[in-house]
Simulated assay, not measured.
Amino acid sequence: MESGTYAVDPEPSGPPWRPWSEVGEEKAADRGVFAPVHTLSFGTPGAIAIAPGDVRGTDLIPERCGGYCCGLDGSDGPNLACARCGLAVATRIDDCSLWQAVWFAPDAVRGLPADASTGTTADWDAQGRPATPPIDPSGAWSAQWAAAVGAGLAHLLAASGGRPVALPDGLMTDLLGRLLDALLPSGTPAKAVVPAGPGLPVRNSDDHIFLVPKNPRTGEFWRAPGIKQSFPLPFDMWRHLVAPDERLLLPATGGLPDGVIRDDPPPMRPWELFRPDRNVFLYTLARIPEVRQPWLREIYDRVNDRGYAHCF
């Protein structure tokens, strides 16, 4: 989470947990889960995530500070208590390989209105937001991109209907080409991935799958009349794919002398093949109704049964 932001998980989280064999397909489908998962939470929905550095007025609970390796993993339950009353109110997670966040229990905290309006609206104006580059300074692929593409891949497979998918050349092929070759049949006719979003025309066709952005504040998918099949990515990542050479114009004076060549560093290149986040992919695909179709369920089971499936 970025400092100063928060997110709300609409699904139940935390104990009690019930195994899939006990829940059953019908009750799981009522919860919006359409493929087998190990367990389902029947805790309280509405957990609130914020950046760990934004937390104030809490103390760690020493006996609940278990972790796998280098930090806290939250497996012992809420590990942050209110500094005033001692009530367990949140779970801090910062172990290695886990997303760092503090999750406030929805039945232990309540929201209060801010003293003044922030002036933010749920529009598509995100020009001031910093873009997340696909490659970290270390040369590794960004974990944020791996998670976002894992979720987007689940929607892309569902939109494909089991047909081949044609990707535009460039970064999108680097991210998804190898995966689609492994998971979908080859040949023609293929469905073409076409960018769509604010400021772009919609050329609707039954053979198009539209790459659309998520609203940077609400997380809602961008929609337009005539769009039937789409897969989403966060706004800044969508913009990076749609306009990779776009630069924000800043006021400047002067310029380089004639004959002087810029010496900007070349763009970073990854040192390994891209792999989407397998867990995010499975989590998302299990919650898409199309996964009940035999061909897509076979993909779900294949990836789920192989802990280190070759394409992940």
Rank of each mutant, 00 (worst) to 15 (best):
I227W: 01
L233V: 01
L296Y: 01
R275G: 07
D263Y: 00
P185K: 09
W238Y: 01
E22M: 08
L183K: 04
G66K: 09
F235Q: 05
L241A: 09
G219D: 07
W141K: 03
A140L: 10
P15W: 05
V37W: 04
G71A: 10
A108G: 08
E290K: 14
L98M: 14
A151Y: 01
P213C: 06
R129K: 07
L184H: 00
A131C: 10
C65I: 05
G177S: 07
L72P: 04
H38S: 12
L179K: 08
G139E: 11
L273G: 10
I93T: 12
P78K: 11
A146I: 07
L157M: 07
A105V: 12
P133Q: 04
A143I: 03
H38Q: 13
R306L: 14
L171A: 11
D115N: 12
G161N: 05
A147Y: 11
D174Y: 02
L153P: 00
W124S: 06
L233W: 01
W145F: 06
V55G: 01
W99S: 12
D245N: 12
L171C: 07
L87M: 13
R247N: 12
E22D: 13
H310S: 14
F235Y: 14
R306M: 14
R275Y: 10
R217N: 09
S75Q: 05
R297A: 15
E22W: 09
P234G: 05
T39D: 14
L180T: 05
D245A: 15
G259D: 09
W238E: 03
F104Y: 07
G46E: 01
G119S: 08
G77E: 03
D181Q: 13
V212L: 00
E2W: 09
I209S: 03
A7R: 12
P10W: 02
L241S: 07
A192R: 09
A224R: 02
P267H: 10
A28L: 09
R31C: 07
R247G: 11
S186W: 00
F210H: 14
P16G: 02
L250N: 12
P225A: 13
P36W: 05
L112Q: 13
A192S: 08
G161A: 08
A47E: 06
